[in-house]
Amino acid sequence: MRIGIVCPYSFDVPGGVQNHVMDLAEALIGLGHEVSVLAPADEDSPLPPYVVPAGRAVPLPYNGSVARIAFGPVSTARVRRWIIRGEFDVLHVHEPLTLSLSLLAVLSARGPVVATFHTAMTRSRALAAAQGVLQIVLERITARIAVSALARKVQVEHMDGGAVEIPNGVAVAKFSHARPLPGWPGECPPGTDGAIGFLGRFTEARKGFPILRDAFVELARQRPGLRLLVAGPGDADDLFGRFPADLRDQVTFLGLVSEEDKARMLRSVHLYVAPNTGGESFGMILTEALAAGTTVVASDLDAFRRVLDGGRAGRLFPTGDPAALRTALADLLDDPDGRAALTDCGDQVVGTFDWPVVARRVLEVYAAAIEATDGRVMDTEWVGLD
């Protein structure tokens, strides 16, 4: 099958949707399909061979974060050329309601279109301003995928349609076989040592880093061997300035890491903490931590609860409560058997998210979309693209 996949967000900056698109493409290629991915990126960016760069992106506030997107006449022309040259059996767009390449691809498509919705956001100023165009986009989508029950609920209640729920995948082998970073993680005697990890934008409010910081500061004063490993974009001085001077030696900052080093980072800690306060429709980092064999401690968000099987595959704590997080961390650091029980359950849970398993479910949606269109070619003139 010839498959065209469109990512709305720039490959110049890492993110959950970008990683999802790359992993899906590689899983489909591994299953014998021909895949081309179109994404915003500079022409000279180092990209996988299956990715076609669509030019430089611009930042746009979106869903409590900043998305780097591409839009406008030049982007439209590039999208159309890519679709014509690709002669795809199916076009798979991600986040088609974002003002970027995915939306343009839907409007330019002439065959079956499958759309994946990642977020559970119901409205934004950008969406409201483009409501007329978005209705056209929704009408031209043949089949919809939602990565979570929350994202699917948005489709049913706000987008006049249903969606097949297929979760984000994780390349289990990549994480389970990763080597820990030098000097990590070591043994974790009860009451003394231990390593805690956080990955994300520590300056972004909804990632909840201040909650983890407060819990760590209290805990580190009782456990002089406790260490915190932080990875993600941001300034090192800004990060260390958030901690008391006498505890900064117990904090290590990796900065922005590659996918390979992310896997190594997750293999290097005893507990991975996701203190997010909201805005999450799934929780890909949780499945990656589970794949790495790391015990997960996460906010009791609905999306996280679903990934962690209601708390069987990881410890949940009340969202926004640093005292409760500190207690959960202390309990697990002192309970290696409890950590082992959680990771054993995590191994079972994460198997359902392994990319070959997820990719086969996506292929079933492709087949249904192709059958639904029955080889018909849509006219694009009426949306002003010719």
Rank of each mutant, 00 (worst) to 15 (best):
R306Y: 13
D249G: 10
G234P: 13
R227I: 06
A236L: 07
H270K: 03
G384C: 00
I69D: 04
V357F: 12
D354C: 08
F243G: 06
E260D: 10
R140G: 02
G279P: 07
P53I: 01
C345M: 14
D89R: 12
Y62A: 03
P14G: 00
V154M: 15
G225M: 13
A313H: 11
C7D: 12
D246V: 02
Y62G: 06
A67S: 03
G279H: 07
V357D: 10
T192V: 13
G200F: 03
F117T: 08
P8W: 00
G232F: 05
F202A: 12
S281A: 13
V357M: 11
F202L: 13
G132H: 05
G132V: 07
F202E: 14
T203F: 03
L254Y: 00
L104E: 15
E364Y: 06
L47R: 04
D337W: 08
A178R: 04
V251A: 04
V137W: 02
A245T: 14
R56L: 15
A330E: 08
H33W: 11
A39F: 10
R110Y: 12
V251N: 00
P318M: 01
G225S: 12
N19K: 12
G232E: 04
T252P: 02
L329H: 08
G320C: 05
S102G: 02
S75D: 07
V350T: 11
V230W: 07
V6T: 01
L229S: 06
A324N: 07
T327V: 15
A340F: 07
Q18F: 08
H118E: 02
R248H: 05
E165D: 14
D300F: 01
P53S: 03
A178T: 03
P167N: 13
V154E: 15
R78S: 05
C345N: 15
L38W: 00
A70N: 11
T287P: 09
Y50G: 05
E280D: 06
V90N: 09
T203L: 03
L229T: 01
A274T: 01
G15D: 01
L256F: 00
P275E: 05
T98K: 00
I285P: 02
T295G: 05
G225I: 12
A109H: 00
L107M: 05
R361V: 00
G197H: 05
F317R: 01
G111P: 15
V350I: 12
G384N: 04
H94Y: 01
L60P: 10
K207L: 02
